[in-house]
Design a protein around this nucleic acid. Structure first.
Lengths: 352, 352
DNA sequence: TTTTGATGATGAAACGCTTTATCATGATTT
DNA sequence: AAATCATGATAAAGCGTTTCATCATCAAAA
């Protein structure tokens, strides 16, 4: 059925060896092919529409040129965060550049990590873990099977290769900005406790205000819109004089929820309440007002992770196996200079 | 290095054939293995931590159990639409259920379709195309190489296997609802012209009003938030008495832009202006007011496409190779009963 | 007793490539 | 003239599976 290397060899009047050496390009071993034969081979291959079987190649060389991409559970958190597609985009670029391929796995649909591990090995040279759950089953499998892996946006185990962004620094950036804008009574809505990025962001924020001798209120919130809504209602459930003037939300989605409740209540943003988000997702620019938020180089993180992994697979030395990429602050209009809210402008919270 | 089938056979005191037959399970050919031998094989395999080489398997059987997933260019349209991840989620479920694997490709990063095709073949048994560009290069490659493919959310060529949703029907649903709510002066913001779903949605909408003998204004818009903003401003640029009372936006994102401008202008939604979106993306429920919109069974479309493709690969007859899945209307609060706007409540358009 | 059949097991030939080892040949050096 | 070298080429041995063809047994049927 399919045209093989032997067919090409026959048509070109030469041996499979010559064809292999010619078409696989590069300077492999000691096989030499003369100019004329080479041309005949090219011609024959073109004429037959030959394309070598990657499978056979893999079996012969022991290298598959495939790396596994393990995506997190496809739940609401994932769906509503453009992380995954952005990370994937960065990964794709690098993987294509370096001539590798990507095989997709998810930890979804009742698939045990055991099964995943089974599928992964022998087909995949290394694995990229995007936000792997902290229970760690996955990276353990990798370690047991001695299959190289890089974990993105999460920190599964000491010594593991990871790519993260500077969560602490992001918290610092947000706090500095808020402080500069004059906010002295502020609160942090901390992200879910089981996510390893929540704490350092919070701590970074706190560190700035602590240095200024100012106490910061920490509210346990979460990464969803609902979490923002709930937490904000909770905050509004106190005397007006005790409202914070600045809020550091767990992420953009949460900030969105916060702003919705605040606006329904009659608070003007940023004049009555300033909000800073995290992630700089696409909708941050579209919100009302446009959201000031901490930007992570997400797609670059994907690229970096892929690059590290492939380096390792190819024996290139990797200087920093656990880089922490810098974040930046995208200043828009949701965090302004502080001015106390006038109680006359307030309505009651929309109970929806 | 790796433990092979021969190692297992040796340890179990039997032949590779027996091991293969035993561990590959199922009722293949005429190889019979006695109960005792079988147990010894299981034991040996477990002891050695054996897992068969998928590569070797593929080479021997000629089946890779891998299907290619080709994602569209990773541009803003994609990033801001949860389509891709939702479709992927549906695909993944089916693919995992049927014990296949997914290899990822995108049409991104200067990768010519030629290259893609090269990579795809010989490793992949079939291809799933998510919103392939209408220029058609990709599906042509597939056809030339006789590699089965299913196109999702787009209609590349007559006779091609596709999975689409009922765009015309979606337009009808939106129109019927608007009509029932009393709207008689309405407009459609049509999606990008180079996207095959734009036209049928528009036509579906028009058909309902045409039947009622009412003319509908059609504005060429697009699928982005910006498009919604631009089109709405354009509409507001006329005498108040000529404002439509109902608007059918190209999609949710566009609707979001529309509502932003309308609210800035002082129009109350839905009382002054009713809006219906399309897609029922996650943020539709979070918008202000929550958006009434046409829901597509996106993840189901992915599942269906994968199912069709695998059926075909396995020789199962597929009754309908180009299904059009039904859509539904998710009624929230952005489309209400018609009431003329009071001109006193209007402000000027925010020029941002 | 000879056939037929079922059961259990295996050797060896693919699958399509890479790669090692080997071999000619003619040119250059000793 | 013999030895060495560079060049061009190939046969054959893997790579780790599956599967076809074959072969012993032993039980049941003829």
């Amino acid at each position: 059925m399919a045209v093989t290397i032997r067919d090409v060899a026959k048509l070109a009047g030469t041996s499979p060896t010559a064809v292999s050496a010619t078409l696989s390009g590069s300077s492999n071993s000691s096989i030499r092919v003369g100019k004329e034969t080479r041309e005949r081979i090219y011609a024959a291959a073109a004429q037959l529409g030959y394309s070598p079987s990657e499978i056979a190649k893999s079996l012969a060389t022991g290298k598959t040129k495939v790396i596994g991409l393990v995506l997190p559970y496809a739940d609401a958190f994932v769906d509503q965060n453009p992380f995954v597609s952005e990370v994937m985009s960065g990964i794709m670029h690098e993987v294509v550049d370096r001539q590798y391929n990507l095989m997709l796995f998810t930890a979804t649909a009742g698939m045990s990590y055991n099964q995943i591990a089974m599928l992964i090995d022998s087909r995949v040279e290394g694995v990229l873990l995007v936000m792997p759950p902290d229970d760690g089953a996955i990276h353990l499998k990798c370690e047991r099977r001695k299959i190289p892996y890089v974990s993105i946006l999460r920190h599964p185990a000491p010594g593991a290769w990871t790519v993260n962004s500077d969560d602490f620094g992001g918290g610092v950036l947000a706090a500095q900005h808020m402080y500069q804008m004059g906010h002295r009574r502020v609160a942090v809505l901390r992200g879910n406790q089981d996510v390893s990025t929540s704490e350092p962001r919070c701590q970074g924020f706190l560190s700035v205000y602590r240095e200024a001798g100012i106490e910061v209120e920490v509210v346990q919130s979460g990464f969803s819109w609902r979490d923002g809504v709930t937490s904000m209602k909770q905050i509004l459930d106190r005397p007006v004089s005790e409202f914070p003037t600045g809020l550091f939300a767990a992420n953009d989605l949460c900030a969105e929820g916060v702003m919705r409740v605040a606006k329904d209540y009659g608070l003007a943003i940023p004049s009555d309440l300033s909000v800073v988000g995290y992630d700089d997702t696409w909708f941050a620019a579209m919100s009302q007002p446009p959201l000031t938020t901490v930007n992570m180089p997400i797609s670059e993180m994907g690229k970096r992770a892929a690059s590290m992994l492939i380096d390792r697979l190819e024996g290139v030395e990797v200087v920093d196996p656990s880089p922490i990429l810098p974040v930046s602050l995208t200043i828009r209009h949701s965090c302004g200079a502080h001015a106390a809210p006038t109680s006359s402008s307030l309505k009651t919270v929309n109970p929806r």
